[in-house]
Design a protein around this nucleic acid. Structure first.
Length: 264
DNA sequence: ATGGTAGCGCTGCTA
């Protein structure tokens, strides 16, 4: 099964690029973030015509997450476990079961600056995600947590660690929150295949950062062990960051070999 | 150079 994630920075602006990418990358499941649209504007037909069912959770001009699947889409849920619909004020998490895998598409708050109220809200959101895992998920089951985590797991995931002193995305509390998710029973799938530095998934639009190789790896696919043990291929598709009207993020994909379905 | 670009939507916010 090929599982992918992509922060598209407006699905309206990016739809032609997403359609093109679906056609050549052929993911079985694609998680999208920052669709920046309400559910009523979601272009479901563009995906249905390619064989993808879709679940979208969006409230308007900010955030917005979706899951596209051509291997089934069941038990769709927006927000955290136990969260009532009226408690969901930002569209940052949607989950569904696709081909036997519980898939979550998530968009962690940016945090803006360390110590700000937005930063505290980011840490609180990550804490809610941790509780969601503990209450609603099973580390022994097939689970894929995909999305824009707005955290670079390690110094090798940023272009220049010294220039990120005191910045968000690399602070110790953020990295500890990510480690908490991993300790629960998740594996950073990309790192099962590559250990080099300088492999990024996001580059600021400004100052020519992409062409200067100034980026960060903040878009992650976290898999429970039954899936992580069967990763055969992983890729950050930098070609999708080039050309006409690219997102500032590249898609990330992993292939998981069959066999994890076999239970005891 | 404390800069720069993109998206939304129409003013300034978000990233």
């Amino acid at each position: 099964m090929r599982i992918a994630t992509w922060n598209v920075n407006s699905l309206k602006a990016r739809l032609p690029r997403v359609e093109e990418w679906l056609d050549y990358a052929q993911p079985d499941v694609l998680c999208l973030q920052e669709t920046k649209m309400a559910d009523g504007d979601f272009p479901a037909m563009a995906f249905a015509s390619r064989g993808y069912e879709a679940a979208h959770h969006g409230l308007g001009r900010w955030n917005g997450v979706a899951i596209l699947s051509r291997v089934g889409l069941e038990e769709v849920r927006a927000g955290f476990s136990g969260q009532l619909p009226e408690q969901v004020t930002e569209a940052r998490l949607v989950s569904a079961t696709c081909g036997g895998v519980r898939v979550a598409s998530l968009y962690v708050p940016n945090g803006r600056s360390v110590g700000s109220e937005h930063y505290e809200a980011k840490l609180a959101w990550l804490d809610s995600l941790q509780h969601h895992l503990e209450e609603a998920c099973d580390p022994a089951g097939p689970l894929a947590l995909c999305g824009d985590f707005n955290i670079a797991p390690d110094d090798r995931d940023v272009w220049d660690p010294s220039s990120f002193q005191g910045a968000t995305h690399v602070s110790e509390p953020e990295r500890q929150a990510l480690k908490g998710l991993l300790s629960w029973g998740l594996v950073d799938a990309f790192r099962t295949r590559y250990d080099q530095e300088g492999l990024f998934s996001w580059w600021d639009y400004r100052a020519g950062d992409f062409h200067q190789h100034r980026g960060m790896r903040i878009d992650l696919i976290l898999l429970t062990r039954p899936l992580a043990e069967r990763v055969t291929f992983a890729l950050i598709d930098r070609f999708a960051r080039k050309g006409k009207q690219p997102s500032d993020h590249a898609p990330v994909l992993v292939d998981v070999a069959d066999g994890w379905r076999q239970g005891p």
